[in-house]
């Protein structure tokens, strides 16, 4: 029934090329022997070797991963609660404000979130003595604040799609509300929780601006290290790092696609 429209396909192809050519070039030049991006002087994996011996970068990566995992876990809990509230509690007082507050971090510029949270942490330290200094905890809190909105969006749409009579049936068969949630609702929204977790993890791993504001001395995250080295100009080590990240993401996507195809509820 559908006719192929060539101009449309052309734009589509251009769009994908636009999205992928820079990444492919990054990967290609990570295997370049020369330090210069423009000159291809032979295949080499030496930048990977250098990368793996860059202690500062490795430390930063480990800190980032820890923060990202903490952030993702807490954000999934909070985001799921918020999604429950929005889908299952109907109209409650302050719902509009709740929704506004929840969704605002999705579009709020990073500089504003970073600045305002830093000022909060400073004020809190002055008045109640907590948080004492800035680092892991403050960065995690900041990341959770904006990640939970993303989780809430993902979980909310899954909850809204769910057949409400499943929960009623469970209750009719004798399950109490908490039992219904644990035995029926949670297993059914599990795919959304997983993708929410991964999303929150990635967002945290990717954030430069907010972390720069709320980190303290001695807590440098991976994007901060990358940023300072990128400001110096092109560095093949960063290409190698990019290649590794793309590789990890590609593997994760393949696994996710594979399990989803085999899973019982698509």
């Amino acid at each position: 029934m559908k006719r192929r429209s060539w101009p449309l396909l052309g734009i589509l192809a251009f769009g994908y090329a636009f999205l992928y050519v820079p990444i492919l070039l990054l990967i290609l030049y990570s295997f370049n022997e020369s330090r210069l991006v423009t000159v291809w002087s032979g295949f080499s994996t030496k930048w990977y070797g250098e990368l793996l011996h860059n202690q500062q970068l490795l430390d930063a990566a480990w800190l980032s991963v820890r923060i990202a995992a903490t952030n993702a876990t807490v954000a999934v809990v909070l985001g799921t609660l918020a999604a429950n509230a929005l889908v299952r509690q109907g109209r409650f007082r302050g719902r509009t404000g709740f929704e506004l507050l929840l969704m605002a971090p999705l579009v709020m510029p990073d500089v504003i979130i970073g600045l305002s949270l830093l000022l909060l942490f400073v004020a809190m330290q002055q008045t109640i003595g907590w948080p004492d200094g800035r680092g892991f905890t403050t960065i995690a809190i900041a990341h959770i604040t904006f990640s939970m909105a993303y989780v809430a969006v993902v979980v909310r749409s899954r909850l809204a799609q769910m057949d409400g009579s499943l929960e009623e049936a469970a209750m009719d068969l004798g399950a109490r509300p908490l039992g219904v949630y644990l035995q029926i609702t949670l297993p059914l929204i599990a795919p959304a929780l997983l993708s929410g977790w991964l999303l929150a993890f990635t967002l945290s791993l990717d954030d430069l601006v907010i972390a720069s504001f709320v980190s303290g001395p001695g807590s440098t995250t991976l994007p901060m290290v990358v940023y300072s080295s990128v400001r110096m100009g092109v560095s093949p080590q960063i290409n190698a790092l990019a290649t590794l990240i793309v590789l990890i993401v590609a593997i994760a996507v393949l696994i996710a696609g594979f399990t989803m195809r085999r899973g019982p509820n698509r």
């Binding site: 057949d163 009579s165 009623e168 049936a169 209750m171 009719d172 068969l173 004798g174 399950a175 019982p264």
Partner: peptide, 20 residues
């Protein structure tokens, strides 16, 4: 009495079978 304490069971129109 809430549904989970009633000696009553229901067959739903959509059947509401737990997919998992």
């Amino acid at each position: 009495v809430p549904p989970y304490s009633r000696p009553v069971n229901m067959m739903f129109q959509s059947y509401a079978l737990f997919p998992h």
